[in-house]
Design a protein around this nucleic acid. Sequence first.
DNA 1: ACACGACAGTAAAACGTGTTAGGTAACTGT
DNA 2: ACAGTTACCTAACACGTTTTACTGTCGTGT
Lengths: 372, 372
Amino acid sequence: MTAKDTHAGRHRPTSRDVAAAAGVSRSAVSFAFNDPTRVSTATRERILAAARELAYTPPPSGRTLRNGRTQSLGVLLPHDIPKVMENPYYARFLMGLGQVCTREGMSLQLTPPVGDSLVKAVRHAAVDGFVVCGLDTDRGEIAELTRRAIPYVLVDSDAPEGAPSVDIDDRDGARHVAQHLLELGHRRIAVLSVEPRSDRPAPTYRDPLVRRMAGIEDALATVGLSRRDITVAEVPCTRMDGYRATQAIMAAQPRPTALVVMADLMAFGAIDALHDLGLDVPGDVSVTGFDDLPEAQWTRPRLTTVRQPIVAKGRIAGDFLISAIRGEDQHPHQVLQTALITRESSKPPAEPTTPDVPYRPLAPQSPVPIRT
Amino acid sequence: MTAKDTHAGRHRPTSRDVAAAAGVSRSAVSFAFNDPTRVSTATRERILAAARELAYTPPPSGRTLRNGRTQSLGVLLPHDIPKVMENPYYARFLMGLGQVCTREGMSLQLTPPVGDSLVKAVRHAAVDGFVVCGLDTDRGEIAELTRRAIPYVLVDSDAPEGAPSVDIDDRDGARHVAQHLLELGHRRIAVLSVEPRSDRPAPTYRDPLVRRMAGIEDALATVGLSRRDITVAEVPCTRMDGYRATQAIMAAQPRPTALVVMADLMAFGAIDALHDLGLDVPGDVSVTGFDDLPEAQWTRPRLTTVRQPIVAKGRIAGDFLISAIRGEDQHPHQVLQTALITRESSKPPAEPTTPDVPYRPLAPQSPVPIRT
DNA sequence: ACACGACAGTAAAACGTGTTAGGTAACTGT
DNA sequence: ACAGTTACCTAACACGTTTTACTGTCGTGT
């Protein structure tokens, strides 16, 4: 008796082995597992018993090859997983996407760049479609996806007509928060924004951040200021970078009286930094965020911020992706509204700055088209 | 010219198409992509050009079937994704796991139960191995994994010798936090714990929670109290459940003066509830958590809690899984230490309770074996 | 008695790759 | 000139499933 005989070939049992054990054909085994109506209950029981005996269950690899579906959705991430997961924004986004997964019985594959290359990541990922997070449209990954006809949905990009997309009204949100600070009387304002991805050929803002800057300029224009009158810093979107950038910004004289931060996570770091510098928030410096993470209510002081419906964004992206996978080839676009949440981290500056520039209110709620 | 001719068969291009276009065999195409030394650079270029022309890149389905690797790690989750992602604990855990993914160039597949069945989820997931989060060892999923010889690592279970595992010293951590409250003088203590999974046949605590209760009993014993002298509530691990359970607990008379919560997330809800009840923390009620999430420093008051190295736990679990996948079939077990972090949410009770029960300190640091 | 449908199960054709064993031609050294 | 090596490429198999088209058999209605 050889080792081969003992261990039945040593390899994983296959449907052929089960078929042999149960005295039927491979097709019968498949039917026993997938379509009970196609075999008699007696033989079905016999087949399943044999399968149990041999520790066999149909492996996904064969099924995937055969019918081309993986039962999992991919999420194409702009950074590696540790950096992404540091931002509670993504946890909320995945909650929304997860609702769709629960409904559809699918799993979720987080797909970060492999060795700095997202194209490689796309090539290796076995998923039914991708939700693409915060990437410029002109990047190679998206070309790769269209080239290979893999369904996808763009989130927080500047989507062309040809692909489904979910966005928020960044411009409107940023305009409102800037307007809020201007109304409070702030004039020396610094903006802490998110760094463009370094691997871009011509470093530009990612599109949502272009829109937000435009919104801030809208608000500034109403008091006769322009982008040149404010300080803008750009750092990676982490708490620590927010901390460090704030220290640098506050070294300037005269100090800004308000800090407009483009992500709550960075705003948390900013508040820490101001605290460590011995500056009071909002007494000495007002701070505003963007996102309205749950954590924004827990900070001390609680954070004034722009709420965006993150969970809904994830859910809608998932719904769009499912319908794209089903081949219902519409290309829906959804733009979600934001809301200014006023809390404790913003108040009028201690001493009015440049009172020579009067405040003129914005034109009321002029709709700002995202796509021209 | 038929439609078929026009669209070249309408189906995705395959390596055969590329081979035909470049005038070579399919093998040459495969080599051009995978092993450049096996074809001349000239023909390699020609093949890649043809592939680009036809929008061909080797699909993962074939490769996976052939060489049995998916380049992705699975995370077997005890609940659906929205519920899991509500707890920042998991974001941190995934950060650790993500470090391994970055190093190995793999992606991460979140695998929740499909229609309440984790066994189904395991069967459909195409991954190289699983990190199993917080499941009892005697559950069917784990049997399924061993049966099918799929590599896995148990996290926060009560692992048998035969499988790699990562745990924390739950008993020691819980003992220390209970000891802390007893030292402060608290005697009327309530414990807010995590509910056992409802689908268990005989509802018992999940193993880490058994260990934590044992730790609390260790501490209680030093002052002559036992589990019967304290209130224990068990609810699902969400913020909202923590909120509601706290309301219920505080309805009792006399009110507990200290609340030992088994998860920071629930503790946040508890603090909210106490605030809404008009009770001061820690003036009227002390609250302690477990985990030491980053958010624990942001609450008002900041949370006294048991720190566990969540990110390290994820990283080590990932490392163990990788080595299991590589077939280095050791079965390492790691138990990580915890630390009591004393912050502002705990202080002595307003009026000393039951001064008739004196305080006797714990035996110093007696090592507590996890496995007997 | 016969045609017909229902039923149970099977054979064979995809699905698309990676890789081993081998073959042909050109080239090299004596 | 010839044996041996090298460089390049191909044929064929293996991976394991699902599904379509088909075979045979049995019972049934007319």
